[in-house]
């Protein structure tokens, strides 16, 4: 069941991290509005294989907006023109017949291109490894209901924990800052009593690693919040700044 949309794509092609890349034009025809954006790429790739051309490499896995793997920069916006969704949740009904769509990878010094639209986001993992956890070995936990947590704090912590680590916040920021991502994890744990004992070392270590990875600084433009598919709030950055100042103050004593 094919559809009736014909589109022109300008897609970033880059053979590997050392090669120079460029935008290449592709025409795609008979696209159905019910297809997802990635399914439209499947159709194009299927054709490229039939023409014996290397298909376009892009990251994806769950295709339902939760794994954080998909990462296309579409017409100047990470995850495309609609708010609050990932690339895999974008459907072709958000475009018009005849549109020209430009698709690029995330661009940031800390996210080098691997191939075409695929980038390396392992910097995020290293930031978490630096402190984005609660140090509790398996088997040491007390009964889960021993420590009541106010519903508001639990809900707020959950809202911050909803970050999928996609990197759209970095991709959209003119400074390529990772503050929204880092502050989401800092906030999630700072809002819970379990996170209390390590809250100072956590924020200091995570921020140090963030800087070491080459992410830029935050100048409060708020583009990250606007482009975040999971609605991670800027208030997390404010909370992290408070935590950071507090921690610095204490560690300087």
């Amino acid at each position: 069941m094919s559809g009736n949309m014909n589109l022109t794509l300008k897609v970033w092609r880059q053979k590997n991290s050392n090669a120079k890349g460029e935008l290449v034009d592709f025409k795609v025809n008979d696209i159905s509005p019910d297809m997802s954006f990635l399914e439209m790429f499947d159709v194009l790739n299927e054709r490229l294989v039939s023409e014996n051309t290397d298909p376009i490499a892009f990251d994806h896995d769950c295709r339902e907006g939760i794994c954080g793997m998909c990462s296309m920069f579409i017409d100047g916006r990470p995850h495309g023109p609609k708010d609050g969704i990932t690339t895999c949740q974008l459907h072709m009904r958000s475009f018009k017949d005849g549109d020209t769509i430009t698709v690029e990878p995330w661009r940031a010094q800390a996210f080098p291109v691997i191939k075409d639209l695929v980038v390396d986001r392992t910097a995020f993992d290293r930031i978490i490894a630096a402190g984005g956890y609660i140090s509790v070995n398996t088997g040491n936990a007390q009964d889960a209901n021993c420590l009541p947590i106010s519903k508001d704090n639990a809900d707020e912590s959950f809202a911050a924990a909803a970050c999928i680590g996609c990197g759209a916040c970095v991709a959209t920021c003119k400074n390529a800052s990772a503050m929204l991502f880092v502050s989401a994890k800092v906030s999630q744990l700072a809002l819970l009593p379990q996170g209390e004992p390590e809250k100072q070392s956590r924020v200091l270590n995570m921020v140090a690693q963030m800087d070491a990875e080459g992410f830029g600084s935050c100048t409060n433009t708020g583009a990250c919040e606007a482009e975040c598919p999971k609605g991670i709030s800027l208030s997390n950055i404010a909370r992290m700044n408070r935590e950071y100042l507090g921690a610095q103050f204490c560690s300087e004593k």
């Binding site: 519903k151 999630q188 379990q194």
Partner: peptide
């Protein structure tokens, strides 16, 4: 039961009631 205890200790934000319990 141990799983739930472990996850809560790690900071997994399960849904809670107004009284603060799971």
């Amino acid at each position: 039961g141990n799983i739930i205890d472990q996850c809560v200790a790690q900071g997994v934000p399960f849904a809670r009631e107004y009284g603060g319990l799971l």
